[in-house]
């Protein structure tokens, strides 16, 4: 059984039932974040797609794959965005190897 349910996305607003003011503030903020600013809506959707892969959120991947396509990005651009996420996530693991090296050096003869 999968915990991920596709229709959750469409029902996301229901999360506001128990704490409507907080939800409203969040959704207002969210909407403003993705509005055209110094970055275009298309660029923001590509960033969101990359982050969605980093946090491995199936809802976000679904939503921002669609958003990227509708903002005019093609699959090659979207794949490059995912590689950016992969590089940062992989790089962040690898750079912690420096900690490993320091600790190992201190403990080793």
């Amino acid at each position: 059984m999968s915990y991920f349910k596709e229709d959750h996305l469409a029902k996301f607003a229901e999360i506001g039932k128990e704490a409507p003011e907080l939800a409203q503030k969040f959704f207002d903020y969210y909407q403003n974040v993705f509005a055209e600013g110094e970055l275009s809506e298309r660029e923001k959707a590509l960033i969101a797609l990359a982050v969605a892969h980093t946090v491995q959120c199936p809802y976000c991947i679904d939503a921002y794959t669609r958003a990227c396509l509708e903002k005019g990005s093609n699959t090659a651009e979207m794949t490059e965005a995912v590689h950016v996420a992969t590089a940062i996530k992989g790089g962040s693991a690898l750079v912690h190897g420096m900690q490993m090296r320091d600790i190992a050096a201190k403990l080793s003869m």
């Binding site: 298309r42 669609r66 509708e70």
Partner: peptide, 17 residues
């Protein structure tokens, strides 16, 4: 035209790109 089952982006922005 969009390459699939989704709506097109803003015509103006797409033209610029």
């Amino acid at each position: 035209n969009p390459a699939g089952a989704f709506l097109p982006p803003s015509q103006c922005e797409l033209e610029q790109r």
